[in-house]
Structures are given as C-alpha cells and as structure tokens.
Amino acid sequence: MLATLSGSMVKGRRVDWGGIILYLILTCFALLMVAPLVYLVSTAFKPLEELFLFPPRFFVINPTLKNFNDLLMITGASTVPFSRYIFNSLFITLASVSLGVVISAMAAYPLSKHPMPFRKQIFSMIILALMFAPAVTQIPQYLVIANLGLMNTYWAMIVPGLAAPVFLFLTKQFLDQIPDPLLEAAKIDGAREWVIFWKIVMPMLKPALSTVVLLSFISTWNDPGPAMLFTTSESMKTLPFALSTISGGTGVIAQAGAGAAAALLTVIPSIVMFVISQRMVLETMAHSGIKD
C-alpha cells in the first residue's frame, strides 16, 4: 500500500507539489502538537512576574532557574526526603504496569481464543465497566481496601489498578487479530497452554503490549488518586500527590513557579518511557504477522 500511495512523492526532476503540500500540512500540525511541551518547558523557566502576565504569553522572555531552586527549598523543608516520593512513585508504577499487563494479557487470551461458557457475558461486563465514572467507585473501593487491612501499604496503591478494564479491552482487541492456526499448530506439537501463552501469544502481542504498557505507565504515573485515597502517612505519598500539595491549589501565588517546575519534572519519566517504547508503539501492527 505504501508503494502505491507514494507514487506521487518522487517524479524525476519535476517539482513535486503534492509532496511539498504534504510536508507543509504535517509541519503545521506538528508545530501545534509540540505546543504543550514547549509551553511546559517555557513556563518552568518563567520568573514570577511573567507567570501572571495578562494576557498570558507563550514563550519565556527572561528565563530563570529560580523556580527549580524554589522547588528544592520547598521539598527540602518537608519531613520526608523528596527521593522517597520518587521511589514510591517509581515502585508503584513499575509494579502495577508490569503486573497489570501480564494479568490483562492472561485474561485476554482465553477471552479471545478459548471457547468457554459465559465468555460473551464477561466481555460485555468489561465494556460496561469501561463506561462507569470512576469517582463513584472510589469510596466503596476505599471500604474494600480498609476491610482487607491494606491501608497505607504499597499493595493498596498497586492492586486496585490491576483490574482496569481499559487495558484488557485493548489487549483483547489486538489478540483477536492473531491467526488461530498458529496456536493450533503449537497445540498439535504438544505445547501446553502455559507454554503457548508465554512462547507464542506474548511475543506476538509484543507491539500491542508495548502500547498498553506506555498508556498504563502514563495514567498510573500521573494519577494522584490512589495515594490520596489509600494513604494517610507522609512516607507513602507518591510524586504527583506530593506535587499537588506543593502547588497548593489555585490560591498560592508564591509557589506557582515551583509548581511549574515540578510539572515539567513529572512529565520527564513519561517522555523517557515514550522514547524507549516509541518504535514498538508506532509500528504496532507492521511486524505482528497480522496480515495473514
């Protein structure tokens, strides 16, 4: 398909207007797409008077490192070292992403490839759960966690996210496209289900799973919710929660700069994660043998 569509790109020495227009459009879009990142970076370096300029300006005029200094001061003054928040966040995010992906894939496999009773019902339950506003389940979730005696533990922040229906839905959609004969061939060769899952299903799903990993990393890393609900002690707080207390809501002017710096720093792990998984995510389908 690429070959047929790209016919218009190169035509000897004639000026290729189609190609130029294509690049122009893409560049315009790309500029708009980069805008949030540029804004984030430039805001982090803005001095106080520029932060509250009206009308707000996009770019910074007199860049300063003061915001980062402020951030260090504020975090240095708290009782718990800042590295503790980072560790908490990293640990919780990594644990819930890796466990969540495996559990979702394990659940998606029979849902997609095993003929078993209630399969349809389970799947429609998942779709229904997708539509539910999470705010409403928060307090009953809190009750469940409290009854299990998991308050103030890492478990409380990892486990509730594992059953997220979104990722099961995505994984199952991808799995549906893996051809059945491949699995049947393995079965005929005497492979057990467990072996099939790890040796065939998981490798085939790799591109799709890396998409799921990236999305779930972003959502877990940025979500202050679990820490807000399930912890009361300072040492169990996660980074986004700690940062949301730094910028202190809307009223606190003096710390707005530190908040902007903090926002920039929080985004960095997500970007790193994206750069690592980028190839896999963006080429999702190309190598997964889906075409046959």
């Binding site: 559990i103 659940a107 095993h114 389940t137 009953p140 469940v144 059953a163």
Partner: peptide, 23 residues
C-alpha cells in the same frame, strides 16, 4: 474450559473486588 478459566481467574477476582463490588 478449566484451562481458560484458570487463565482469566486472577483478573476476575480483581475485577470483582475492585470493580463489581464497589459498583
């Protein structure tokens, strides 16, 4: 069928505890 359900069971337990019961 048993194999299928054993794969999905972990997820189902989690789903019931943290989605179905709260809902």
């Amino acid at each position: 069928i048993v194999q299928g359900y054993s794969f999905i069971s972990i997820w189902i337990v989690g789903f019931f505890l943290f989605m179905a019961i709260p809902l």
